[in-house]
Deep mutational scan, measured.
Amino acid sequence: RELEAFAERFKQRRIKLGVTQADVGAALANLKIPGVGSLSQSTICRFESLTLSHNNMIALKPVLQAWLEEAE
């Protein structure tokens, strides 16, 4: 499924970029996305391991996609 594929791609790109899960969480606050502050390292970890609820995964995907586009 698309969500699982994105989570895997996100993790691979993050590692290639040399960015930690905690760095991603902190950097999200800098994107100034309305309603989104920083996220914890454990939230990023749970996203990558697909252990968040489906609704949370869907909500976080565009936020993490925005970070990925900014980071690349």
Results as ranks from 00 to 15, higher is better:
Glu69Asn: 11
Lys16Ser: 13
Gln21Met: 03
Gly18Ala: 03
Arg46Ser: 14
Leu50Met: 13
Gly35Tyr: 06
Gln41Ser: 15
Asn30Pro: 06
Ala66Thr: 11
Arg1Cys: 06
Asn56Ser: 15
Ala29Phe: 10
Leu31Lys: 14
Asn30Phe: 06
Leu3Ser: 04
Leu68Gly: 02
Ser42Gln: 14
Arg46Ile: 01
Cys45Lys: 15
Thr43Lys: 08
Leu68Met: 11
Val36Ile: 15
Glu69Phe: 07
Gly18Cys: 02
Gly37Met: 08
Ala59Gly: 11
Gln21Cys: 06
Ala22Gly: 11
Val36Arg: 05
Lys16Ile: 08
Ala5Phe: 02
Lys32Tyr: 09
Ser40Glu: 10
Thr51Leu: 09
Ala5Cys: 03
Lys32Met: 12
Leu68Cys: 06
Phe47Thr: 00
Gln12Ala: 13
Lys16Glu: 15
Lys11Pro: 01
Thr43Pro: 01
Pro62Ala: 04
Gly18Gln: 07
Ser53Gln: 04
Glu72Asn: 07
Thr51Phe: 02
Phe47Asn: 00
Phe6Met: 05
Gln21Val: 13
Leu68Gln: 03
Lys16Thr: 11
Ser49Lys: 12
Ile33Phe: 07
Ile15Tyr: 05
Gly37Ser: 13
Leu3Gln: 07
Val63Thr: 06
Leu68Arg: 00
Glu8Pro: 01
Ser40Ala: 07
Val24Tyr: 00
Ser40Arg: 08
Ile44Leu: 00
Leu60Lys: 01
Gly37Leu: 08
Thr51Gln: 11
Ile15Lys: 12
Gln65Arg: 06
Ser38Met: 13
Glu69Ile: 10
Arg9Leu: 14
Arg14Ile: 02
His54Tyr: 12
Ser40Leu: 03
Pro34Ser: 09
Cys45Leu: 11
Phe47Lys: 01
Leu50Ser: 14
Arg14Val: 01
Ile33Ser: 01
Arg14Glu: 00
Arg46Pro: 00
Ile44Lys: 15
Val24Asp: 02
Ala71Phe: 09
Asn55Asp: 07
Arg13Gly: 14
Arg13Asp: 06
Glu8Gln: 15
Glu8Tyr: 06
Glu48Leu: 00
Arg13Phe: 06
Glu69Ser: 11
Arg9Lys: 14
Glu70Lys: 12
Ile15Arg: 03
Ile58Asp: 15
Leu31Trp: 13
Val63Gly: 03
Ala22Leu: 06
Ser40Val: 04
Gln12Ser: 11
Ser49His: 12
Leu3Glu: 04
Pro62Phe: 03
Ser49Asn: 13
Lys32Gly: 08
Ser38His: 13
Asp23Phe: 07
Phe10Arg: 02
Lys32Phe: 08
Asn56Tyr: 10
Ile15Gln: 05
Glu70Asn: 15
Ala22Asp: 08
Arg13Leu: 09
Ala26Gly: 08
Glu8Arg: 12
Arg14Asn: 00
Leu28Tyr: 03
Glu4Trp: 07
Ser42Thr: 10
Asn56Pro: 02
Glu70Asp: 09
Val19Gly: 04
Thr51Val: 10
Lys32Ser: 12
Leu64Gly: 01
Met57Ala: 08
Gln12Leu: 11
Gly18Met: 03
Leu17Val: 02
Ala27Glu: 09
Phe6Leu: 07
Phe47Met: 03
Thr43Asp: 05
Val19Asn: 08
Lys61Tyr: 12
Glu69Leu: 10
Val19Ser: 09
Glu72Gly: 06
Arg9His: 13
Glu69Lys: 12
Glu8Cys: 07
Pro34Asp: 10
Ala29Lys: 14
Gln21Trp: 05
Val19Pro: 01
Leu68Glu: 03
His54Arg: 15
Gly25Met: 06
Gly18Phe: 01
Lys11Tyr: 03
Lys16Cys: 14
Glu70Arg: 12
Arg13Asn: 09
Thr20Glu: 08
Gly35Pro: 05
Ile15Pro: 00
Ser49Tyr: 07
Trp67Cys: 03
Ala22Lys: 06
Trp67Phe: 11
Lys16Tyr: 07
Val24Thr: 02
Ser49Phe: 03
Ala71Tyr: 11
Pro34Gln: 03
Arg46Cys: 04
Leu17Glu: 01
Leu3Asn: 02
Gly37Glu: 14
